[in-house]
Simulated scan of single mutants.
Amino acid sequence: MEPEPLFELVQAESGSLSFADMAAMPLDELVAPDWAMALAGVEGELRAVLSFLAGEIAAGHPVLPAPSNVLRAFRQPLANVRVLIVGQDPYPTPGHAVGLAFSVDGRTRPIPRSLANIYKELESDLGLPARVHGDLGAWSDQGVLLLNRVLSVREGAAGSHRGKGWETITTAAVSAVAHRRGADGRRLPLVAVLWGKDAEGMRPLLDETPVVASAHPSPLSASRGFFGSRPFSRVNSLLREQGDGEVDWELPVL
């Protein structure tokens, strides 16, 4: 069976999409159709957050990532998710945030230090070479949901959009991923990767989902349990146990 195609925002290519536009758009034009069904219960909260972001822009506060990318994690069909990696909030540096946790635009140099530490552990774990770019889109294409707990940030102000409503939406998203069932009623294959205390707070939502947990890869904590945790080989082992193959963690050369 062919995988479902990546859902794309039609207006994103034009670069004209605004947060105010998004707040008025039907939910199934903002996210993949099965995500629209899963998030229907928090649609009001999502529209409120998008209106808040429109207000930030109107007040002269740049917001990251761009409107066309703020819901990027939900463009891949919910049905295709095999691995959930939970981040905190987007990088506050202009040009870095692209709507996928830990990922940056492929042209960004140097890459953020947390991502550099992820690459170090990837090389130690699987022997895969570190890349000079930070585009993790190839992981997303294989069903790795790179989901930040908070999906936006004011430029230059890390954590500035916490407590503005995103947590309700991402809580619903994680719960939806963890509670998917196939036609036979069995839980669909999934492994959750929880790096750090913020991500660990999502564990109660995960039901019976196998979890790979460790310290966060940031420079402040990577040496306290992230390095040596071998998350990538552990994820693949848990996927194989569920009969779902492996993720090819090697990123392409750009």
Rank of each mutant, 00 (worst) to 15 (best):
P5S: 00
L6M: 11
L9G: 06
S14H: 07
S14Y: 14
D21V: 06
M22T: 14
A23W: 07
A24W: 11
P33S: 13
P33Y: 06
D34M: 13
D34R: 05
W35S: 06
G44A: 02
E45Y: 08
L46E: 03
L46H: 15
L46I: 01
S51E: 05
F52A: 13
L53H: 04
G55P: 00
G60T: 08
G60E: 12
V63P: 13
L64W: 07
L64G: 02
P65Q: 01
L71A: 13
L71W: 15
R72H: 02
R72T: 03
F74G: 06
F74N: 01
L78H: 07
I85K: 04
V86P: 00
D89S: 14
P90H: 06
P90M: 10
P90S: 06
Y91C: 09
P92N: 15
G95I: 09
V98C: 12
A101D: 05
S103W: 01
V104W: 09
G106F: 12
G106W: 15
R107P: 05
T108R: 13
T108K: 09
P112W: 05
R113M: 10
A116F: 15
N117M: 11
N117Q: 08
I118T: 09
L126P: 02
G127Q: 02
R131F: 13
R131Q: 06
V132S: 12
H133S: 11
G134P: 12
D135L: 14
A138Y: 15
W139E: 00
S140K: 12
V150K: 00
S152V: 01
V153A: 08
G156S: 04
A157N: 14
A158F: 09
S160H: 04
R162W: 13
R162K: 08
G165L: 07
W166L: 15
T168E: 02
I169M: 02
A173K: 03
V174K: 04
S175K: 05
S175Q: 10
A178C: 12
R180F: 02
R180G: 13
R181C: 00
R181A: 00
G182R: 03
R186Y: 04
P189F: 00
W195D: 03
K197G: 03
K197R: 02
G201D: 08
M202R: 01
R203I: 11
L206V: 01
T209N: 11
A213F: 00
A215L: 02
H216A: 09
L220G: 08
A222Y: 07
S223L: 14
R224P: 15
G225N: 00
F226M: 04
G228Q: 09
G228R: 10
S233C: 15
V235T: 07
S237F: 13
Q242P: 04
Q242N: 06
G245N: 15
V247D: 14
V247M: 12
D248H: 10
D248A: 06
W249L: 07
